[in-house]
Simulated assay, not measured.
Amino acid sequence: MAQEKLGAGDATDYLAISFSSNDYVVHLYGASSLETEDNLIRLDKTLADLFKHIDNSVGLDNTLIVLSADHGVPEAAPTLNTLGFRQPFYFNKGNLLTETLMNKLKSQFGLGEDVIKLYAQPYIYLDHELIAEKKVSLSDVQKLIAQEVMKVEGVAAAVTSEDIANNRVADSRVNQLIRNNYHPLRSGDVYMVFGPRTYINDMDGLTIASTHGSPWRYDTHVPIIFAGNKLEAKTVTRPVTPYDIAPTLSGYLNVSTPSGATGDMLEEVVKH
């Protein structure tokens, strides 16, 4: 702030900070762990020091503070188990390749396990060249795999990219989120959704306690806090999203909204 003389000129200055340690700590130890509690206490002290410095140098009355995150987080499965929830567990991705699936791939299409190139959350990627060599339908292979993995305990949904691309999926909240994720050049062949609070506890080779990336409410519920600069205290209970921050700041400053922005202006902030 001192080096860039933030807040010292006539124009509005924008400072963005990511407190990323919270993400790693919760991944490794879980939302209810003592490590997470300790980290949040330290983060609270860090924010207090930052706001004190801003108040002394610029003045908090001249500052709009925005706090948010990029996703939610589930409790660690063992924690939920101790509370009486029996469904959540750590999923072993090896369970996806059932004997029945392998037998059907062989008998119906002449394909072996090598047709499955990769599982990268949330997609199963297939070897398209191998499928073409066998002169079988990619859509049929995708459909068979989706049908079979749906029978595996812990899998809540499996949707093929062919069905997504051709709008052959039911109109539901979860399916809409799946459609939003689809990219014709990068997406895999079968999109998988595990059951609530069930997930693979591996992240880049690390054994973790918790992870995000699901369409369930605990992952998509992300708070947004606007504070300072004469804003009145108010609670908004309708659905909002972190995508709303950029349009809201644009309206607040009376400048053009970024071309890639997809959210809406929050009138409670813009028309304060």
Rank of each mutant, 00 (worst) to 15 (best):
Q121F: 15
N180Q: 14
Y199M: 15
K93C: 10
H212E: 06
V193F: 03
F51H: 05
A227N: 13
P215A: 12
T235R: 10
S21Q: 12
E35M: 14
P184C: 08
Y252I: 04
F194M: 15
T207E: 06
V115H: 05
L105H: 00
G213T: 06
Q176T: 15
T82L: 05
G188S: 10
A77R: 09
T241P: 08
L111F: 07
E268S: 02
I224T: 08
H221W: 07
V141Y: 00
E148H: 02
L249P: 01
E232D: 14
M203N: 14
N166F: 04
G188F: 00
A120D: 15
M265G: 07
E75C: 02
T237C: 00
L126H: 01
T98Y: 07
R86N: 13
L97S: 01
R168I: 15
N167F: 06
I116E: 00
V222E: 09
L144V: 15
L177H: 01
V174E: 03
A77V: 06
V152R: 05
D55A: 10
N229C: 12
T241V: 01
F51R: 03
E113I: 00
K117T: 10
H128T: 13
S210P: 14
V236Y: 13
Y252C: 06
P258A: 10
P184Y: 13
D244E: 13
E148W: 05
V255S: 08
T98D: 12
D114G: 07
S68F: 13
V240R: 06
L185S: 15
V236G: 11
T63N: 13
Y218G: 00
L105I: 06
S21I: 13
G112E: 11
L28W: 04
T262C: 00
V222Q: 08
